[in-house]
Write a protein that binds this DNA or RNA. Structure first.
Lengths: 189, 189
DNA sequence: TCTCACATGTAACTAGTTACATGATTGC
DNA sequence: GCAATCATGTAACTAGTTACATGTGAGA
């Protein structure tokens, strides 16, 4: 579809959230920070202009919602065209263009310049950081597992998709934790 | 050091390579594409301005080198100050600011919208892509292992640092490959 | 002659972050 | 009155990519 050219990944991130429930720009930004922030972050100043773009493209619409206890908000809702756009994108070709930048690996690439104690401390710190995240994610998964019977799980449910992203996070952090430990073993030997 | 504020990670990427050997802007860009490109990419149009910046900061110097068979080049060399800057950076605090954007995980987060066959094909393709990379990296490591005796390895050698980055790449690609397989198992079940 | 690798740069554009700017309502 | 949360946006800046622009020398 031609649309793909006009869309940036941030647009699909917004649509991904709106496909689950209507949200205000504020809530969208909050979820982009907290819910999906570990794998796809965007600030609120990025969200508002993007919502305008999406609305112009007919992929979302908004309505003003007056609230008694809080300021009036704009509630954004995905349109059928928007839903179709996500559907096409989600299994469409993934640009293998990896302007990938991993500073941690870059540091490993230059670790030969460091002093042993500094190098050990660095990878020790990194191991702790990633082990903490790992532990946190695993706790969330354990929580889900204990409340969500395996039989009730279907891959085409939004909750499973969230679970799959969490699973990816766990594997990613575990891999990092183990590599940091490996680095220390190599340096310490 | 105050210098850290003036430096961007791309600057350290350049210095990381120059700490190993003097290079021209062209060679620098080539290595940034081929050698460290898998974990830290930058195009040549980014390298040249960065070299100017680094030279102004006194972290690199250059000399013209006339070649008979090829166009004259500028050979860049790291200065003692530059080497010291890398040394400080390499084990210094790593900004945990992760404006991390992983489109693959974002897609998993919206996979519930897809059709089963499209979802299976998508993660099958991704698994193939990452398994290919994994195989390629493992072949390189096997090559190194067969020529480089374990006793001769020291963590403070540039070659070990390259090996460590490769190890990280292998673990990263393996993790991704396995997760893609897991996704297919979940969808197919 | 033409293409490829080597070699260096700038310009224009796109993307993204941080800072700026404003305002309502609630609870302390 | 003041801080915090909810709420929406713009402006200025930083970073990064793609396209533009030029030129040498080797080999087919």
């Amino acid at each position: 579809m031609l649309l793909r050219r006009l869309m940036r990944t941030i647009g699909f991130a917004v649509l991904s959230l709106l496909a689950r429930e209507p949200l205000s720009g504020y809530d969208l930004a909050s979820q982009l920070r907290e819910r999906v922030g570990t794998f796809f972050y965007a600030g609120h100043s990025h969200v508002y202009p993007e919502l305008s773009r999406l609305e112009k493209a007919g992929l979302v619409v908004h309505e003003r919602v007056e609230q008694r206890d809080r300021p009036t908000k704009k509630l954004f809702r995905i349109t059928p065209a928007g839903r179709e756009a996500v559907r096409e994108w989600v299994t469409g070709p993934l640009d293998p263009a990896l302007p990938f930048r991993d500073e941690l690996t870059l540091r490993a690439f230059s670790i030969w310049l460091a002093e042993r104690t500094a190098a050990l401390a660095f990878f020790g710190d990194q191991e702790r950081v990633h082990r903490e995240r790992l532990t946190r994610y695993e706790a969330i998964r354990a929580q889900i597992d204990s409340h969500w019977p395996t039989e009730g799980r279907r891959w085409d449910m939004p909750d499973f998709a969230s679970y799959a992203a969490l699973e990816r996070g766990i594997r990613y952090e575990r891999e990092l934790t183990e590599w940091c430990a490996w680095m220390q073993a190599q340096i310490g030997a």
